[in-house]
Write a protein that binds this DNA or RNA. Structure first.
Lengths: 338, 338
DNA sequence: TACCTGTGCTAAATCGATTTTTCAAATTAA
DNA sequence: TTAATTTGAAAAATCGATTTAGCACAGGTA
């Protein structure tokens, strides 16, 4: 059960290794190999079950045909939705994917990028997190194929594709306002990421647009580096201190889930005591009674677009990217909570 | 920004490439390289930031230092819990991991195994699903390092590690019985997988052990290849047709989640109208009021054990596996639903 | 007849490492 | 003093492919 090599196939077909290589790589015509010989080679390769040795090909061609996908958490729902599409799309293009997660460890982000470099991935798909600026910056400088997803670093000229966060929140807040609600809280987290500031901007401006005063005390910024139980407690206090609140908008599904727990613990009924809306859908929001309204991110579309943009960069001939920054609209899904 | 090669380092240090290789691979003593020279080489390598070319190393050594992890669904909760541990444990051993999912496509399972073979993974971690028998059989025959997780194929002599399914269900049913419940339903799915039959065996035997009659009509076997909405409907009918039921045990979390929807639609209150317990925990079960009691699988432990067993196989010298089949106990988590 | 030209393929170089072999110089043994 | 051994490192082979250069041979041309 020894591995079959190109040489073996050549011997079986009675030709030189190079001839086999030409034929199997579709360069038979170009190298003026007779159809007769080409046929024979194809046949032998087929029936012997020959598979080229990936590492050898990689070494010679300098291409690993592998993409690196870096996400924050491999067990998060964003990754779960993303990975499948990324994988199938990559495969369609003849690439496979290695996944890495920073697991909320700022330092690890930088290491990962080096790690992937050492492993020779041909391109990077990255969801930016704090601490990865330098690494990303370096990739850009070295002109490595790269697409950021879900966020980007202002000031670093890397292609990105993400949800139109501002517009998404606007859709949501407008809906709440349309229902006659004006006392609307916004819960976010103290991370310096563009998608969060955009979401907050959406909240603030949409309130203004509707002539609703923006109260600072209605904006709760939870600490990211905290036990979940602490955040839960803080959220509960926030709700208790502002009993007049009619609605609450969570900037991420992670926050929304904590929110559900807090709301449940306080015995509040949705939507009558409190209307709830959340950015980014999650299985739980579909099931949790009475169903939580959300702004759904077009994750599938993000994945496909990202792969497209990456493939464009990998096709050396194609020149610079047509679209550098892509923003895709989110979709509001209304459920019982509003 | 050209890649630094071993040769470059050799030139910089004023020695031959082979010498550099020996030193950097810790074979300096063995090859009697003078400490002085070794020091110099180390220094040059360090400060030049040299990183060996993975593909070249792989080609020469025949080891890719990569493991293949095949799961049913990359967006499932089982994978989510598994992946992180697998990845960190693998990394600790100097391996990285490529993930693949069969996405419930029986045929794809077989292809995947070939695909990974072509990519030259050094070992396989597989959660068996229908349709993969042949592929796994082949790996065993070719003596490829392999560990099955979560299930196994009776008749195929491959190492595996999984939850003690029988015992887990037993814990759960005993708890229900202790609460004085006797009319207990068991919902499973029509897949021919050992973990499901084991769970069912646990249900049947534990009832018998408590002198409770096992009624066939209390066992519902849903069709796997069905729309979720169809399963939901069937489950609803089942509950309506057996209104006397006091408790229901779901064999998988996937089933349990559908169950929650059915129970909610019928307006049943847990645990008074119906006590609910489910095999395999899930985020939703923690949050969904009043909290769903579950038998939690020791996924972390499964992952660690699996990697251990795989590493043992990869250490050629070590001989055959000490433990071939490992069963780890599940843990019952009681919540409001019972 | 001698000289190109095109055809059809083979030989050899290459990718970047590891590993085996070789070899001069220093040391020891006879 | 000469042969045998040890030391320290370089040279060369190798992994399995791709790719460039080269080489017979047939046919056409001057």
């Amino acid at each position: 059960m020894e591995r079959l090599t190109l040489k073996d196939v050549a011997k079986l077909a009675g030709v030189a290794p190079s001839t086999v290589s030409f034929v199997l790589n579709g360069k038979g015509k170009q190298m003026r190999i007779r159809d007769e010989v080409a046929q024979k080679i194809m046949q032998v390769a087929e029936k012997s079950g020959y598979e080229p040795h990936r590492m050898a090909v990689n070494l010679r061609t300098g291409q690993s045909k592998t993409l690196g996908l870096i996400v924050e958490s491999i067990s998060g729902s964003f990754f779960a939705s993303l990975a499948k599409t990324i994988e199938t799309e990559a495969e369609r293009n003849g690439y496979n994917v290695v996944y890495c997660s920073t697991e909320n460890n700022a330092q690890k982000g930088a290491e990962l990028i080096k790690m992937l470099g050492r492993q020779m991935v041909d391109g990077y798909l990255i969801t930016p997190a704090p601490g990865m600026e330098k690494g990303v910056q370096q990739l850009v400088q070295n002109q490595r194929p790269l697409v950021l997803m879900d966020s980007y670093f202002p000031g670093i000229k890397a292609p990105y594709v993400l949800t139109n966060n501002y517009d998404g929140v606007q859709q949501g807040i407008r809906q709440l306002v349309k229902k006659g609600l004006t006392k609307i809280a916004f819960v976010t987290v103290d991370l310096d990421l563009i998608q969060l500031t955009e979401r907050q901007r959406g909240y603030v401006n949409t309130l203004k647009e509707n002539k609703i005063a923006v109260k600072k005390k209605y904006i709760l910024q939870l600490k990211y580096h905290r036990q979940q139980s602490d955040s839960l407690r803080e959220l509960r206090s926030f709700l208790e201190e502002n009993p007049e609140l009619e609605a609450i908008f969570f900037a991420t599904n992670y926050l929304g889930i904590i929110g559900l727990e807090a709301i449940s613990q306080l015995g509040l009924k949705m939507p009558d005591d409190l209307a709830v809306m959340c950015f980014d859908d999650h299985d739980i929001f579909r099931l949790y009674p009475p169903g939580i309204s959300v702004i759904e991110q077009p994750i599938d579309n993000i994945a496909r677009t990202a792969i497209d943009m990456l493939m464009q960069q990998l096709d050396k001939g194609k020149g610079p990217l047509k679209k550098f920054a892509v923003e895709l609209p989110g979709r509001m899904i209304l459920r019982g909570s509003t």
